[in-house]
Design a protein around this nucleic acid. Structure first.
Lengths: 191, 191
DNA sequence: ATTATAATAAACACAGTGTTGGATTACAAC
DNA sequence: GTTGTAATCCAACACTGTGTTTATTATAAT
């Protein structure tokens, strides 16, 4: 079942359009990027764009979905067979993935990125991490739900700050900050 | 020092434009709202709009700044002279304010709202709350900065979930969830 | 009632959209 | 290499929205 060969021209068209969109997203948000502008940057005819995508958002979503699929595959390559350390290791891996794909992640997770994607990524992790907690602890289903929301949004904030500052801290250091915050809150720091 | 009287016509124009924008924001994001559409909804001539505002974002920002100023004034009316309970009371007040201004807040803090505003609001609170912690605890300036980011973003997530669900919980209940999460993290629930 | 000015209506050039039909070119397959 | 296929390009189209200007009308302030 080998995927049928794709015409080189199509491959090229899609690639430059994606690259050009990423470049433009470094400067402005998706809503302010016009298709005309995008096509001029990519040196692709506008009607060719419409042959492949509905609009800017369509193209951006495809880029996002590719990233998400790639990340999932990357995470699955790890077994994560530790018990307590499981969530920590997973969070480290996420940060490592972001480092390895810095250019793209910086755009998609940055201020011009899509929040929906960011939540999708972190939800993936946290739900996995909290799965067993639910059965072991005295926390109700409802409260767990609330806390996951809190933890996911907080973690996204940290990732964004980290990216803004140029990823000076290592993946492991960031993972430690995140897990500490998630599990112990401010009490981790106040004697 | 009484503010010079404003022409009733101007007052009306600005009011309907604001109301109309709020209505439209219930349905679509600011970038998808055209000025033509907004003026038709408000039954205001398009050139009149340009006499007062630069574009949609300009109008929206003015609405946001008014809300923020109003909230600040509201918070200042409280003295907040408790010590430990200070931050808790302040958070309760925030939630009470949102309940009292539900229609507007639902839009501005909701999915079509401006994240920048939301962060501005919560930053205001958290910085205030954490001011003394810095001197009492063994937390470094840097770590505090990180944790504030985490807590602010987490809290915003909780507010959004609360609004989405129709604000079923009381302001006090929500404030308890937030403070618990901020101060103790998951350890509040896991024996 | 008079005066000042805000709002309106109509028109303008301009930019971007989404779609079309036909010419051109590059490709894969044989 | 030749050839049929199809992807790309090009030019044109009607349409929507923008931002600005002008003269006219309506209304507020005094």
């Amino acid at each position: 079942m080998k995927s049928q060969k794709i015409d080189r021209r199509v491959k090229y068209t899609k690639l430059t359009l994606k690259d050009s969109l990423i470049d433009l997203l470094k400067v402005k948000s998706i809503d302010k990027i016009t298709i005309t502008e995008l096509c001029e940057t990519a040196d692709i005819n506008r009607s060719t764009f419409y042959a492949h995508y509905k609009d800017q958002h369509d193209l951006m979503q495809q880029i996002e979905q590719e990233l998400l699929a790639d990340l999932k595959q990357y995470l699955e390559s790890y077994t994560f067979q530790g018990y307590e350390a499981e969530s920590f290791q997973m969070i480290v891996s996420i940060f490592e993935y972001i480092v390895a794909n810095a250019e793209l992640c910086k755009v998609l997770l940055g201020p011009n990125g899509d929040i929906a994607l960011q939540k999708e990524v972190m939800m993936l992790v946290q739900r996995q991490s909290f799965k067993e907690i639910h059965y072991n602890a005295k926390i109700s289903e409802e409260m767990l739900e609330y806390y996951i929301i809190f933890a996911v949004n907080g973690s996204i904030g940290l990732i964004q700050k980290w990216l803004q500052e140029g990823m000076k801290k290592t993946a492991k250091e960031m993972a430690e900050i995140v897990t500490k915050a998630v599990f112990k809150g401010l009490s981790a720091y106040v004697g």
